[in-house]
């Protein structure tokens, strides 16, 4: 819709601006929740800032994994024109990869400074869907991650210059996913108003987002998402995450960790 804006004659990607705004908001929400969980505000701030590194690296690695079939299919063309490879790697990020990368960095942070992982993830959890909601608005402005052909109400038609096919009515998947993420954020904030058992918030986020993502992937129209046996890479990850999410949210119960435990050092 609006891939970039000009500020003093210099183009800036709306996708990147939305992503940065979303991450900033997530960090603010995470630090404001530190008191409820009982972790020091500084620890949450540092862990979330460092998790941005994991987010970038993880999102990019999974993106590269998702384009391996394309690289293989066009290997002959790529070997003749190496510039294509650069263009392919200049692509974006895959959300699940970003989540895994960020969680990995938070795990390393907690391990290094002897903090408990699940309370930290519970503190961070409501911030993830709000950052993602902003990210999807970025996708809407760039025209990427678009929906399938659709002629019903609220159909989107992208102009020339966006990543989506121009002039075709498409399912409004980006705003739809953004709204669902905001609903998930509100639900998690309500659930996390007081201290719950460790892992409930993060597990609930994983559970509900996996279901949402699995269903929404059927309405996606962008071809290159690493399709394997009829499901996309994100759908396979969603399926694998479901039992893990249920285990974290409802079954796993660490010893000596009551509701009043102080998790700060």
């Amino acid at each position: 819709m609006l891939p970039q804006i000009d500020v003093f004659g210099r183009p800036f990607s709306m996708y990147a601006i939305f992503c940065v705004l979303g991450i900033a908001l997530a960090i603010l929400i995470g630090t404001s929740r530190s008191k409820i969980i009982g972790i020091q505000k500084n620890d949450v701030l540092y862990a979330m800032l460092l998790s941005v590194v994991g987010l970038l690296v993880g999102g990019k690695i999974l993106y590269i994994v998702s384009v391996i079939p394309v690289l293989w299919e066009y290997r002959q063309m790529i070997s003749e024109h190496p510039a294509i490879l650069k263009a392919l790697f200049n692509g974006g990020f895959v959300f699940f990869g970003a989540v895994f990368g960020a969680v990995g960095v938070v795990y390393l942070y907690c391990k290094k400074y002897k903090l408990k992982l699940l309370p930290m993830l519970d503190t961070v959890a409501p911030g993830i869907p709000i950052a993602h909601a902003f990210g999807r608005l970025g996708c809407l402005s760039a025209g990427c991650c678009y929906g399938c052909s659709y002629n019903g109400p609220l159909a989107l038609t992208f102009p020339e210059g966006c990543a989506a096919p121009a002039g075709t009515a498409l399912f409004p998947i980006q705003p739809f996913e953004s709204v669902l993420n905001i609903i998930l954020f509100i639900a998690l904030m309500l659930l996390g108003r007081r201290k719950r058992r460790d892992g409930l918030l993060f597990g609930s986020y994983l559970l509900f987002y996996s279901i949402i993502r699995f269903v929404l992937e059927f309405f996606r129209g962008d071809a290159e998402r690493g399709i394997l046996f009829g499901f996309s890479l994100s759908q396979w990850i969603s399926l694998l995450l479901l039992p893990l999410a249920v285990y974290i949210a409802f079954i796993y119960h660490p010893k000596n960790c009551g509701p009043s435990d102080d998790h700060s050092q």
Partner: peptide
Amino acid sequence: LVCVSSIS
């Protein structure tokens, strides 16, 4: 850059 679908 753009998001993942830009590859197509």
